[in-house]
Design a protein around this nucleic acid. Structure first.
Lengths: 186, 186
DNA sequence: CCGTTTTCTTGAGCCAAATCAATTTTCACG
DNA sequence: CGTGAAAATTGATTTGGCTCAAGAAAACGG
């Protein structure tokens, strides 16, 4: 199942829905918990992590790479303050879409409505994968599952965030990686 | 945020989209892995669990109570074989909706389209909650979080399935429950 | 209502991953 | 480049939840 994100992006470009461009430096936030931020952001360049505090610990929910869309999705959906943080892991260029403009277009154009239906369905199946990852008991198996699905993840992003995303400590991830014979083809 | 499920249900009743009624006895399956099942089921009576095999272990993904909708959502979304099992935990009466009929109605009626948009958004925020639950390290804390959100869960469903849903053994759940002083108000 | 099966509870021991700690390596930035 | 800070690695130790086991309680179905 190919990601419908590229179709969405083509549509948004064609209909000129990007509102402004934002430059972030390492450590900057796109949004933070407590803030009501209903925008959608397109990552033109760079990488971000989206995390949440659970019991005083940061927990990575997802990463945003070049070409991805990032949002405080809870805030976008219900218009209330988000619980999420999205932080630049390096210099980023992101382009913003305002919810009001997006929703107006969504109501006006059935083509976008169909596209959006695909996107949300795709997000739901993606979350099912994520849930299965998190339900996997063995840390090495969690690593393997995610690595097979998104090997590129491990190029750009510091291991400590990946470890956190995989629900393990950086020490455990390091030991797992050293235990697995390196693939000569990569 | 109130669940938009009741609105959906009212709509489906009003437009007579239920195709047939199915009776299940304890242990029966609504669908199983490998099968392509694109139907949506309304739980008129009873309770079910939806689970998936991960590394030869059953892992509960969600429960379906009276008034809920249950589906092999991966199959519904992409039309391919599901990886999910939905099994009756007791005698159930479920009513079926065929995807083809549902999709036809979705394409024909903007009211249903709007309703469906709400439903999918609501599912996405629900999944975010679930993800946070699963990322919580302390088992007692996972229990507390889910219990506060859905206390009714612990009435109908055998503890061993709840434990599995909470990513812990039945022994651990039992010990957590005996450690927490019972609430006299309930 | 009774008998059988399933589930729950409790205890003991173990083990894998967390924690703690120290060094090495890498990387960002001047 | 070179320097300082951040990240990764490696080892030692601890510990919390799992496994195994046995008995008690509860629930199902006839």
């Amino acid at each position: 199942m190919p990601s419908p994100i590229t179709d969405l992006h083509a549509y948004l470009e064609a209909h000129d829905l990007f509102h402004k461009t934002i430059e972030l430096k390492r450590g900057d936030y796109l949004h933070h918990a407590g803030e009501t931020n209903t925008n959608i952001y397109y990552v033109a360049k760079g990488t971000l992590r989206t995390y949440v505090f659970v019991n005083d610990e940061e927990q990575v929910i997802r990463f945003g790479y070049q070409g991805d869309y990032v949002a405080a999705m809870d805030s976008f959906i219900n218009g209330k303050p988000t619980i999420l943080y999205s932080q630049a892991l390096r210099k980023c260029t992101v382009r913003m879409i305002r919810k009001t403009e997006y929703m107006a277009q969504l109501a006006a154009d059935p083509e976008l409505a169909r596209l959006w239906q695909k996107i949300t369905s795709w997000m739901i199946t993606g979350q099912l994968e994520r849930e299965i990852d998190l339900l996997t008991n063995d840390p090495a198996e969690r690593y393997r599952r995610v690595f097979e699905r998104s090997p590129q993840l491990f190029q750009e992003i510091p291991a400590k965030y990946i470890a956190n995303y995989l629900r393990m400590t950086p020490e455990t991830l390091s030991r797992i990686r050293s235990a697995i014979p390196p693939d000569p083809s990569t």
